[in-house]
């Protein structure tokens, strides 16, 4: 299995010419992955991020074969630990593991031992004792994968922890941007919505900044902490102000439970101020990319016209997610 970047390096070089010198990042052909875990993009170097993207590029082809399977992880066991509900991320990882010929076991917290008062750590140690090589962990608490990574031998892949990080989602978002625009340096990205509680936003900000993109987060002050600027992004409270200048708009899903906390007055008001419909789309660049991590609240973040329109790359994101997760499972298993 190819571990080097099969993507044309020529293409990336031409894009990188426009970058400021400090953002000059290209994949190293002789790069060797050494990490046991993928906990977040915060800890990754730009080279490591590019290496994942390039590895994913080589795995994309597998999905086009009639027999969509490679033996890369034959004999390995991937434990999918979903301490928090998820459908698409779980299915994506599950399919990624099986395309690599790994065996998978699934744990989901509903009705499991967690409800009997067992700690996360005990649950995972017990499952590890069955002989698991890689754990894919989704958890409602920030830092849960870090806690596990310190205590278990198996690799830990963070599939979303609390409001902290969702590295594979950001990797597939970044992968999709690079695929569509042919570059990352200098690309202007707006991330719109509940930034305060979004792991997707954090991972995207970190990853995009490391690769030289510019990021503006957009939302009301109750959903956008000022301190987020310490991660290298700009803050705007007006979607209309940023529409015309960005190449990518990533619309985050609004969690309905946020109403109870009073973080914004009503869905109607939110949708009017921060929703993306045809009128706002008309003010954007012609080739603007519209992204959404799913599941979409149609009529809230995006109108159907926009979600299903020519600028939307939402389904492309999902397809790319599979390649990214194959790449990540493959890389952490190589140590």
């Amino acid at each position: 299995m190819a571990r080097k970047a099969p993507i044309s390096s020529k293409k990336r070089k031409s894009a990188s010419r426009k970058k400021p010198p400090d953002a000059e990042v290209t994949a190293k052909e002789d790069f060797v992955w050494t990490r046991k875990d993928l906990l977040g993009l915060d800890e990754l170097s730009p080279h490591e991020i590019l290496h994942i993207l390039d590895t994913a590029e080589s795995f994309r082809e597998v999905s086009t074969r009639s027999i969509k399977k490679v033996p890369a992880l034959r004999g390995k066991v991937v434990g999918l630990l979903f301490f928090e509900d998820s459908t698409r991320t779980r299915m994506s990882f599950e399919l990624a593991a099986s395309r690599l010929s790994a065996d998978t076991i699934l744990f989901s917290a509903k009705g499991s031992s967690v409800s009997k008062g067992e700690t996360t750590l005990d649950t995972v140690r017990n499952i590890e004792a069955m002989g698991v090589d890689v754990f894919v962990v989704r958890h409602s608490e920030s830092g849960a994968p870090h806690l596990l990574a310190r205590q278990v031998q198996a690799s830990i892949v963070n599939a979303g922890d609390g409001a902290h990080e969702h590295p594979t989602q950001a990797l597939l978002d970044i992968f999709t941007i690079r695929q569509k625009l042919g570059r990352l340096a200098g690309v202007k990205v707006a991330i719109v919505g509940d930034i305060a509680h979004s792991r997707v936003a954090r991972s995207n900000i970190l990853g995009l900044r490391k690769l030289g993109a510019e990021v503006t987060v957009v939302g009301p002050p109750t959903l956008v902490p000022n301190a987020i600027t310490s991660m290298g992004c700009r803050v705007s409270h007006s979607l209309d102000d940023v529409l015309g200048e960005v190449d990518v708009i990533n619309m985050l899903r609004i969690q309905f439970e946020r109403f109870g906390g009073g973080l914004f007055p009503s869905l109607r008001e939110y949708s009017r101020l921060y929703g993306l419909g045809g009128q706002r789309l008309a003010k954007c660049k012609n080739n603007v990319l519209i992204m959404h991590p799913g599941p979409i609240n149609r009529g809230v973040e995006l109108t159907s016209e926009v979600a299903d329109g020519p600028n939307s790359c939402i389904l492309r994101q999902v397809a790319n997610g599979l390649a990214i997760r194959m790449a990540v499972l493959f890389l952490v298993s190589q140590r």
Partner: peptide
């Protein structure tokens, strides 16, 4: 404490 560290960690401040 609320501030950049809490925001980065995704923990309530």
């Amino acid at each position: 404490n609320s501030g950049p560290a809490a925001v980065r960690l995704g923990l309530g401040g």
